[in-house]
Design a protein around this nucleic acid. Sequence first.
DNA 1: ACGAGATTGTACCGATCGGTAAACAGATTA
DNA 2: TAATCTGTTTACCGATCGGTACAATCTCGT
Lengths: 207, 207
Amino acid sequence: MARMVAERADAIAPLAEVFREHGYEGASLALIGKATGLGKGSLYHFFPNGKEEMVRAVLGEIGQWFEDAVYSPLRNESDVNGAIRAMLASTDQYFRSGRRVCLVGALAVANTRDLFAQAIRGYFVAWVDALQSALIRQGREADQSRLLAEEAVLAIQGAIILSRAMDDPAVFQRAIDQLRGRLVIENDTSNYEGTTDVSPQNEGRLV
Amino acid sequence: MARMVAERADAIAPLAEVFREHGYEGASLALIGKATGLGKGSLYHFFPNGKEEMVRAVLGEIGQWFEDAVYSPLRNESDVNGAIRAMLASTDQYFRSGRRVCLVGALAVANTRDLFAQAIRGYFVAWVDALQSALIRQGREADQSRLLAEEAVLAIQGAIILSRAMDDPAVFQRAIDQLRGRLVIENDTSNYEGTTDVSPQNEGRLV
DNA sequence: ACGAGATTGTACCGATCGGTAAACAGATTA
DNA sequence: TAATCTGTTTACCGATCGGTACAATCTCGT
């Protein structure tokens, strides 16, 4: 059943990386080929519509990962504060404390925004909605939860930019810490240690 | 003394616009020529080092504008709350409530970051420093002021991304309103009206 | 009017762009 | 074995890329 040769799915992670690092227009087929180890023929065999289809595949994978790892717990987890803490920890790891760019955010400011507008919007709407749901279940008022959820999501995006501009991951981690203070309602006595940075070896994982 | 023909300075604003809209690599010389009305000959006459020199000129102009309109008042204005309010109003207008991308922020996440790393860093460091100075003069503690200043600057960057992703300038304006609530220490009775959106006609101004 | 310097238009360069076509190879199934 | 589906290689396409060269034009002080 499983094939010996490369599968389409194996190309998604390298594709995500090369689009993150070089953007949509900056990621040439030569770079893509190098990153995936696939020639043009194979690439167009897996993605007949070229780069656009590759990005859509990557966006789908990213959306699925966030759905499973972040949105769904925020919406369904009974331990709301735990889900929020998990969101912050996952985010910190996923974006490598700001060293890794958010592809969706980068696409949102590029001139290619219109091509993927729906996917970009969906990514952020789902995030804000899920976080708002969690904040409401904390007992907060709906409007305030909406505002706070928006603030949190945009703070993460801004933290990526600022920490990259400063070339200082501590900026990102301070932002995450601040968010934890504003989002989590403290009522337990457990001593939760702060930002958990990811170890540098497994840089290829997490989509 | 003043020449009849186009000057180098006249090209800066169109250059800024085209780099904002298309990024560094995406802004081809054809697009640049169209935006500035200058042929390659003139372009390379004014900017012998090509696109890199054009971007540096734009970054210099942007930095100067922010220095005069934002940083300097934050550092020197005796009416601290007024300077902060002015910063938020200027920012809202400059970025057209999130419809206009921040070139510096966009460069910070692009793969060309290293080329302009120093200018990018300087832009954000000056902003955070100036805002911290204002917050300290409000009577806040230095460390808290630093954190809050960082939060404010990254929130503006994140607000641009989120409002563009949502295609909704109201997201940006809500973020500005939230920032005003967190940054300005209310002690007067004057009724200050909220976010002031810029009129859509004069889109070419402000660098 | 003249020469000098500033500005511009145009042709051109090699390299690379995204994408296509088709021959080819490997495994699978009948 | 023959046919088929899947995947890979390679050569190639026209268009555009950033950049250069240089002649032509313009402006201005003398």
